Amino acid sequence: HYVEVNGKKIQATSAEEAEKIAKKFAKIYNATVLDLGNYYKVT
């Protein structure tokens, strides 16, 4: 599981952790979290 933010991949140990990381970055960048199955993308 990982999160992609601005083209950078951030490794996460679980889907739950990946979701938390994605939501945190989405809040910082006022962005949207896309759940793409095996990873989250912040756009």
Rank of each mutant, 00 (worst) to 15 (best):
His1Thr: 08
His1Tyr: 15
Tyr2Val: 06
Tyr2Gly: 04
Val3Gly: 00
Val3Gln: 00
Val3Trp: 03
Glu4Met: 12
Glu4Val: 12
Glu4Pro: 00
Glu4Cys: 15
Glu4His: 04
Glu4Arg: 02
Asn6Ser: 06
Asn6Glu: 05
Asn6Gly: 11
Asn6Met: 14
Gly7Asp: 04
Gly7Cys: 10
Gly7Asn: 05
Gly7Pro: 00
Lys9Asn: 07
Lys9Gln: 08
Lys9Phe: 13
Lys9Leu: 12
Lys9Tyr: 10
Lys9Ala: 06
Lys9Ile: 15
Ile10Gln: 01
Gln11Arg: 14
Gln11Glu: 10
Gln11Ser: 12
Gln11Leu: 13
Gln11Thr: 12
Ala12Gly: 03
Ala12Asp: 01
Ala12Gln: 01
Ala12Cys: 15
Ala12Trp: 02
Ala12Met: 09
Thr13Arg: 14
Thr13Pro: 10
Thr13Trp: 09
Thr13Met: 11
Ser14Gln: 02
Ser14Trp: 07
Ser14Lys: 02
Ala15Tyr: 08
Ala15Arg: 15
Ala15His: 14
Ala15Lys: 15
Glu16Ala: 13
Glu16Thr: 09
Glu17Thr: 05
Glu17Trp: 08
Glu17Ile: 07
Ala18His: 00
Ala18Gln: 00
Ala18Val: 02
Glu19Ser: 11
Glu19Val: 08
Glu19Phe: 15
Glu19Cys: 15
Glu19Trp: 15
Lys20Cys: 15
Ile21Arg: 00
Ile21Leu: 12
Ile21Asp: 00
Ile21Val: 06
Ala22Ser: 03
Ala22Cys: 07
Ala22Pro: 00
Lys23Ser: 09
Lys23Gly: 07
Lys23Ala: 10
Lys23Arg: 13
Lys23Thr: 08
Lys23Asp: 07
Lys23Val: 08
Lys24Glu: 13
Lys24Gln: 12
Lys24Val: 12
Lys24Tyr: 15
Lys24Thr: 11
Phe25Lys: 00
Phe25Ala: 04
Phe25Gly: 01
Ala26Tyr: 03
Ala26Lys: 06
Ala26Thr: 02
Ala26Phe: 04
Ala26Cys: 05
Ala26Pro: 01
Ala26Ser: 05
Lys27Glu: 13
Lys27Val: 10
Lys27Trp: 11
Lys27Tyr: 12
Lys27His: 12
Lys27Gln: 13
Ile28Glu: 11
Tyr29Gln: 05
Tyr29Glu: 06
Tyr29Ala: 06
Asn30Glu: 06
Asn30Asp: 09
Asn30His: 15
Asn30Trp: 09
Asn30Val: 04
Ala31Met: 15
Ala31Ser: 10
Ala31Ile: 06
Ala31Tyr: 08
Ala31Lys: 04
Thr32Gln: 14
Thr32Arg: 07
Val33Ser: 01
Leu34Pro: 00
Leu34Ser: 07
Leu34Cys: 11
Leu34Asn: 08
Asp35Pro: 07
Asp35Trp: 14
Asp35Ala: 10
Asp35Ile: 13
Leu36Phe: 14
Leu36Cys: 15
Leu36Asp: 03
Asn38Gly: 15
Asn38Leu: 09
Asn38Met: 10
Asn38Val: 09
Asn38Gln: 11
Tyr39Gly: 11
Tyr39Gln: 02
Tyr39Ile: 08
Tyr39Lys: 03
Tyr40Arg: 02
Tyr40Lys: 05
Tyr40Val: 06
Tyr40Asn: 03
Lys41Asn: 05
Lys41Tyr: 11
Lys41Leu: 15
Lys41Val: 15
Lys41Thr: 08
Lys41Asp: 06
Lys41Phe: 12
Val42Phe: 01
Val42Leu: 07
Val42Thr: 02
Val42Arg: 00
Val42Glu: 05
Val42Tyr: 02
Val42Gln: 04
Thr43Lys: 06
Thr43His: 09
Thr43Cys: 13
Thr43Gly: 08
Thr43Asp: 10
Thr43Glu: 13
